[in-house]
Write a protein that binds this DNA or RNA. Structure first.
Length: 849
RNA sequence: GCGGAAGUGGCGGAACGGCAGACGCGCUAGCCUCAGGAGCUAGUUGGGGAAACUCAGUGGGGGUUCGAAUCCCCCCUUCCGCACCA
């Protein structure tokens, strides 16, 4: 018997694939395309089994689709900018570029040793000028369209990473990367106006049936659209001077609130401002301790603000525009400055937060919406009534339903010029400035005379200067490189300074999937024709941790690039799979926990195919899995079992001149084998292509192997065992034909999972063309059709008998046979048969009493 | 608190509303072996029975249905996301 030496096969076939360039692709309009993509990797140094699982999932899809005749684009690249490399440089002195390129080389080797079928000619790394040049190009396009803008703003500052974080990068008030508590800081920042696309991004979610519902919901919540109204409350007794300023700017004579419940406005007994609200300082001009108290709130961190509602009365009042009554204006630490108008109307009867605030500070509570079944009184109220009802204490609106009142009052506010219906989003503009070195320089120049001047396109890329010492101290590292900072203004030729911040690395990953369609273009990010052919990505897989950040930004960029004229579609990812994590000892693998499973160790022991197969078989791709050495060994045993099977039969059934299958002359067991073969083809095909249930695809293949062993037992050649020599040679043409059909199909369908072993077995069977583009086995429903079926018979819902009958028996015959069955009769005798249901010819259900 | 997903043998997991537990791991027995931690064959949800068969069974409780792991309602548990968004 030929030895099964998987490590040897790995090397052999990987060399063949690489030297033949078989995974490289070109545009071919004559064939259907399939763009298969796994989220590219941050080059941390070592890929562990958790990362690798994702690449294997994609590889199974890609290899299967190739065999199905698709022109498959399956590229890979590196999300190569980022903090860890720079932090390592501060610690060890190794330049980020050196460590990053070294890590890429190592990880690329790991992926190649797994036999992942990437088109490596299209490899990209975002830290290379050829790539980030187009981050800058896109930035300039956005700047021209007003989609990139600069403003001073309070930003999330991570004191440990010494940089600004996007809202998306703040988790529970802490830095997403290092966990330090984030503090507020005022800085000039560049922003992308993603909010301009809020509605489009929200509506686009409806057109993503191929996305997990979970991710769609997360994005919908993140965008957080709410319909409501802005309403102005006139300030009472605002000094003339301040009121006058309102026309000149800087001061105002009213306070504007945002509410989704204008129907409750007759119950608005107070106003609460956020501590950051401009009116606070305006009021403080007359009463200076206000300023200090507001400042105390402002300096509270998120945690403290969440801990409890606190507030104070400013002593000022505003007129409720509907009741005409004055209400006090308070400042509350729980009111968010950045949402709505930064001021809310307090309706304690119908908003739980306002209720708690009113109880704490003894503010009056008015009920203005009464539920119809159980009327409440403000004296006995224990919590706010936030639900439905009819209006009371609301003047001319009394008696209206809350929804109707909402409509009418919004209209009335608009007519009176005191408010308007409006839509608010939770989504905020995307702050992209980072005070770090290892990222894309923002292509902006500040000229004393001309102000903000974009770098001219012909000067791109604005290259990242070489910096050799990393201290991690001070502001942007680029600010410390005079030859980078000092430039001449492209407009006037005078002295100017470059922007020294770099871009958030999420910019890099927001369009890399487009770059893969045309990775070497030096003029523009990519050729629109290439994108038109390859996009959208048909199958995209990666971790669910990117459900909001990366996937939302990418959808935003795709729309922007559509406006720029580079693409003609809105949604970049047609089907999204969020793969589960790989756990070891119940925990996510990490260096610090010391529970990392290194794929290279597994390759050495069992070869790439056993690892690939195991990871696919152990659970559905979306589920998290617990790593098991025993399971891996099981997969190895299975492959060895396949190897023995093929080796055992190769001489008999291999090569040319094998007769075609012919059901007319088949024995029963040959028919059974053929049926199993085609049933397996059907199941494996839909499991991979439609359901992406890769684990059940593997188990179907295992069943086919078991069937082949059972079939082998019935022949003179016997089952494949290591020890026993065959009893005799099989010469019967139909046996050979059925075996050939089954084993060819088996080897072909195993190929996406275990490509190295499959290629070798394919060769052993006498095929001269490789498996990469071998046609996927064709399902023949005629062959798969059963002659006999087993029909269970239920009596009162319990299975009492199983009838083996010819397929296609009529319902009447089935009914008759079922009722005649002796076991069924023991349960029906002496009882009245109420009903007999024959369910689509495959089950009989008898009801007796 | 809100939203989402899930709860099935010793374990990982299968089951268009139609035979619960496919497939694998583990375990048991037999065969083969100098030996085997290799391989082949068989068995493996629990209770009763020599067996045929039978009773119970998919987190708990109700319901719809001839028929529910699957659909509906209530509850419990776990995981994930969001969390003063007015």
């Amino acid at each position: 018997m030929a030895d099964y030496r998987p490590q040897h096969l790995d090397t052999k076939w990987q060399q063949q694939w690489t030297s033949g360039g078989v995974f490289e692709v070109d545009i071919d309009p004559s064939r259907p395309k399939f763009y298969c993509l796994e989220m590219f990797a941050y080059p941390s140094g070592h890929a562990h089994v958790g990362h690798v699982r994702n690449y294997i999932i994609g590889d199974v899809m890609a290899r299967m689709k190739r065999m199905r005749g698709f022109n498959v684009l399956h590229p890979f690249g590196w999300d190569a900018f980022g903090l860890p490399a720079e932090n390592a440089a501060i610690k060890t002195g190794t330049h980020p570029e050196t460590s990053t390129l070294g890590n890429i080389a190592h990880m690329k080797g790991q992926l190649q040793r797994l036999g992942i079928s990437y088109a490596w000619a299209r490899e990209i790394a975002t830290c290379l000028p050829e790539y980030y040049k187009f981050n800058q190009w896109i930035f300039l396009k956005m700047y021209e369209r007003g989609l990139a803008y600069r403003r001073r703003s309070s930003v999330n500052w991570c004191p440990s990473c010494k940089t600004v974080l996007a809202n998306e990068q703040v988790i529970d008030g802490a830095c997403w990367r290092c966990g330090s508590i984030v503090v507020a800081r005022d800085l000039e920042q560049w922003f992308f106006r993603i909010t301009q696309y809020a509605d489009e991004l929200l509506e686009g979610l409806e057109a993503l049936p191929g996305w997990p519902e979970k991710v769609v919901v997360m994005q919908r919540n993140w965008i957080g659209r709410s319909e409501g109204a802005r309403v102005k409350f006139q300030l009472v007794g605002e000094p003339r001077a301040a009121a006058a300023r309102s026309t000149a700017g800087g001061g105002t004579a009213h306070v504007e609130v945002f509410t989704t419940r204008i129907d409750t406005i007759y119950g608005a007994n107070f106003i609460v401002l956020s501590p950051e609200h401009p009116l606070v300082e305006q009021f403080a001009a007359g009463a200076s301790d206000l300023s200090a108290r507001a400042q105390a709130f402002r300096s509270q961190d998120r945690e403290a603000r969440m801990a409890g509602k606190e507030g104070f009365d400013t002593g000022r009042q505003a007129l409720n525009p509907f009741t005409g009554q004055p209400v006090p204006i308070w400042v509350g630490n729980f009111v968010l400055a950045e949402y709505g108008t930064g001021a809310v109307m307090g309706v304690p009867g119908h908003d739980q937060r306002d209720f708690e605030f009113a109880k704490a500070y003894n503010l009056p509570i008015t009920i203005v919406v009464q539920p119809e079944d159980a009327p409440m009184s403000s004296a006995t109220l224990t919590e706010a009534h936030e639900g439905a009802g009819r209006l009371v204490n609301s003047g001319e609106y009394d008696g209206l339903s809350w929804t109707e009142a909402n409509r009418r009052m919004t209209r009335a506010a608009a007519e009176r010029g005191i408010g308007e219906g409006t839509v608010q989003y939770r989504l905020k503009d995307w702050g992209i400035s980072r005070q770090r070195y290892w990222g894309t320089p923002i292509p902006i120049i500040y000229c004393e005379k001309d102000g903000v001047v974009p770098a001219p396109y012909e000067q791109l890329p604005v290259e990242l200067p070489r910096v050799d010492t990393f201290t991690g101290l001070g502001d942007s590292p680029l600010a410390q490189v005079p030859e980078f900072v000092n430039v001449t203004c492209p407009r006037c030729g005078g002295p100017a300074r470059r922007e020294t911040d770099t871009m958030d690395t999420f910019v890099d990953s927001s369009w890399y999937f487009l770059r893969f369609t045309d990775p070497t273009n030096v003029e523009i990010p990519f050729d629109p024709a290439a994108a038109a052919y390859w996009m959208p990505v048909d199958f995209y897989s990666g971790g669910v941790e990117h459900a909001i950040l990366h996937l939302l930004y990418s959808r935003f960029f795709t729309r922007v690039l559509g406006d720029v004229g580079l693409v003609t579609f809105d949604e970049p990812f047609k089907r999204l799979l969020t793969q589960g994590m790989v756990l070891k000892n119940g925990a996510v693998m990490s260096k610090s926990k010391g529970n990392v499973v290194d794929p290279d160790d597994m390759l050495q022991k069992y070869g790439a195919d056993a690892l690939r197969l195991y990871v696919m078989f152990v659970a559905p791709p979306e589920k998290e899995i617990e790593w098991s050495d025993a399971g891996l060994e099981g997969s190895f045993r299975f492959l060895f079992r396949v190897w023995r099977l093929v080796d055992h039969w190769a001489e008999t059934i291999g090569g040319d001149g094998i007769p075609a299958c012919d059901d007319e002359t088949c024995t029963e067991s040959e028919r059974t084998l053929r049926r199993k073969t085609h049933d397996t083809i059907r199941r494996v095909t839909t499991d991979i292509e439609e359901r992406v249930h890769l684990n059940t695809a593997v188990s179907s293949l295992m069943e086919l192997v078991n069937a082949l062993y059972a079939f082998s037992e019935t022949t003179r050649h016997g089952a494949p065992t290591r020890a026993e020599p065959p009893i005799g040679r099989v010469e019967r043409p139909q046996t050979i034909a059925a075996l050939r059909e089954a084993i060819d199909a088996l080897v072909a369908m195993i190929a996406p999972f275990a490509p190295h072993t499959a290629e070798e077995l394919w060769l052993m069977l006498g095929h001269t063309e490789g498996l990469t583009f071998a046609p996927w086995p064709l399902f023949d429903p005629e062959v798969a059709r059963a002659d006999e079926i087993v029909v269970p018979v239920q009596v009162n819902g319990k299975v009492r008998a199983r009838l083996t009958v010819a397929a296609g028996l009529s319902e009447d015959e089935l009914r008759e046979r079922a009722l005649a069955d002796p076991v069924v009769r023991t349960h029906t005798d002496g009882k009245a048969i109420r009903k007999v249901v024959v369910a689509n010819g495959t089950l009989v259900s008898v009801v007796v009493s």
